[in-house]
Amino acid sequence: MEDSFFVGSFRGNFVGYIDQNSDGSFTCYDRMSRPHGESGSLDEAISSLNDLYFSDASEGEPNVAGR
């Protein structure tokens, strides 16, 4: 792995990943490798990835994390 590439997982499930751009910002990608915006810090990008993963469910249906 690269020092600028971060993979997210939750209970063994692939969440997505974060890639650091040449300008120092971070782009968050979902588990289908679709970009979901940029963040100014790694902490913000991690938070965005968490929010994206845990909100990825139809109303009343659990997402892949069972939530």
Score class of each variant (00 low, 15 high):
residue 6 F to V: 04
residue 62 P to G: 13
residue 35 P to K: 13
residue 55 S to N: 15
residue 32 M to Q: 12
residue 58 S to Q: 07
residue 14 F to M: 11
residue 45 A to V: 07
residue 30 D to S: 11
residue 66 G to W: 09
residue 50 N to H: 12
residue 55 S to K: 13
residue 40 G to M: 09
residue 42 L to G: 04
residue 21 N to F: 00
residue 17 Y to V: 00
residue 65 A to M: 07
residue 19 D to N: 07
residue 11 R to W: 09
residue 52 L to H: 08
residue 4 S to G: 05
residue 59 E to C: 08
residue 48 S to F: 01
residue 35 P to L: 10
residue 66 G to C: 12
residue 66 G to I: 02
residue 27 T to D: 00
residue 36 H to S: 09
residue 19 D to C: 04
residue 58 S to P: 00
residue 25 S to N: 08
residue 25 S to T: 15
residue 42 L to H: 05
residue 5 F to C: 04
residue 56 D to I: 02
residue 47 S to A: 12
residue 8 G to T: 12
residue 48 S to T: 14
residue 46 I to N: 03
residue 59 E to P: 01
residue 17 Y to A: 04
residue 35 P to M: 12
residue 48 S to P: 00
residue 13 N to S: 11
residue 42 L to A: 07
residue 25 S to Q: 07
residue 30 D to C: 08
residue 44 E to S: 12
residue 25 S to I: 03
residue 58 S to Y: 08
residue 61 E to A: 07
residue 11 R to C: 07
residue 27 T to S: 02
residue 51 D to R: 11
residue 55 S to A: 14
residue 2 E to F: 05
residue 5 F to E: 13
residue 62 P to V: 14
residue 29 Y to V: 10
residue 20 Q to A: 03
residue 13 N to G: 05
residue 64 V to C: 14
residue 7 V to D: 05
residue 4 S to D: 11
residue 50 N to L: 11
residue 23 D to H: 03
residue 32 M to Y: 15
residue 19 D to H: 02
residue 8 G to H: 06
